[in-house]
Nucleic acid binder design. Structure first.
Lengths: 147, 147
DNA sequence: GCGTTATGTAACTATCCCGGTTACGATTGG
DNA sequence: CCAATCGTAACCGGGATAGTTACATAACGC
C-alpha cells in the first residue's frame, strides 16, 4: 500500500523527542539518527505541529519539543498527523453507473474501508510514546510527572 | 498511504464474480463495470488466481470464475492476494547504528507495524464476499449451497 | 482445420508521488 | 552583528501506477 515511510520516520522522530523530553532537539540532530536531510525532518515536524503534538523555536538555541507528555501521545496521533490520505484508495475513475454493481460499489467500498481503517486506528491508539521509549531504551530517561 | 487502488478493484471484480457465481465472466465484461482496460483486470485476476481464489479458461466461451463459494472468501483473502508489500514501509536507508535509538528503531517499528497490520487483517477476515453481495444487491443472485 | 473469442504476458508510456537537495528569508540569542 | 535554526519554496531523479498496444497461445464451434 503506502510505499511511503513518513509514518515510520514520524515515530522515530517523536521517540527521540520523547526520550529527551522536555529538551528541544534540532532537525539537524534528528536527521543524523534517521539519516536523511534536515529539511525532510522539518517538513514532517511541520505536520506534527499542525496536529498540536510538537512546538518549535527558531534561532540560536532553538529546536523542537513535545507539547504533551509521552504517555499522552499515541501512535494514532502521529498517524493522523502525517497521513492525510485514507488507507485504501478508490480508483480515480468511478465505476460504471449503468451497471448495478458499479452503481453501488463506491458506497460499499467506502463503508468497508472505513471499518477496516477504524480497526487499525483503534489498535494504534493503544500504544503511547512512553511505551515505545520503554521498549527502546529499557528505562524512562525523563522525569515522570503525576497526572 | 498506498495511493493504489488495486484492493478496491479486486473487491469490485470479486463481487461481480460472486454475483454471477458459478458463471464465468470475461475480463472485457468486468472492465466495463470498473471502467478500465481489460488487461488491467487480467493482471489483477492473475494475482487472485495465484492465491487460489479464481480460475480461468482461455478461448471461446472462456473467462474467470470463483474457485470457492462467496461465503468462503473473505476480504483478507483478496487483500493478501493483491497486496505484496506491508502496510507501512520502513525507510529504504536504515537508521544510524551509532545512535542508541536508531539502533533499536527498525526492530521496534517492525513489531508495532506487525501488530497494527494484524488488527487490520483481523477485521478484513470478518467480511465475506457473500456479505458484500448482499449489501450491494439486496439479495443473493446465486443458489446457496449447504456447507 | 479455420475462424473467433479469450487468456497470458511483455513492452512502452504518461503521470504522479516520494525523498533528497539547494536556496534563501525570517527569527532568535549572545 | 553574527551564528544558529526554523520555514518554505523550488527543483530533480527514481520508482510506482495504470493505461495502452501487441502478439503468442488456447479452446470452442462449425
Amino acid at each position: 500500500m503506502n510505499t511511503n515511510s513518513q509514518f515510520a520516520v514520524a515515530i522515530h522522530t517523536m521517540t527521540m523527542l520523547a526520550c529527551r523530553y522536555p529538551e528541544a532537539l534540532t532537525s539537524e540532530f534528528i536527521s543524523c539518527s534517521v539519516i536523511t536531510n534536515p529539511v525532510v525532518i522539518r517538513r514532517l515536524l511541520g505536520d506534527l505541529r499542525r496536529a498540536g503534538l510538537v512546538e518549535s523555536r527558531s534561532g540560536n538555541g532553538g529546536g523542537w519539543r513535545l507539547r504533551k507528555l509521552p504517555h499522552q501521545i499515541t501512535l494514532l496521533d502521529c498517524y493522523k498527523a502525517v497521513q492525510e490520505d485514507p488507507l485504501f484508495s478508490l480508483p480515480t475513475q468511478p465505476p460504471n453507473p449503468h451497471c448495478a454493481i458499479g452503481r453501488s460499489m463506491t458506497k460499499a467500498l467506502r463503508g468497508l474501508f472505513d471499518e477496516a481503517e477504524s480497526a487499525l486506528e483503534e489498535r494504534l491508539a493503544q500504544t503511547t510514546l512512553e511505551q515505545i521509549v520503554n521498549g527502546v531504551t529499557g528505562e524512562m530517561p525523563y522525569k515522570k510527572v503525576d497526572k
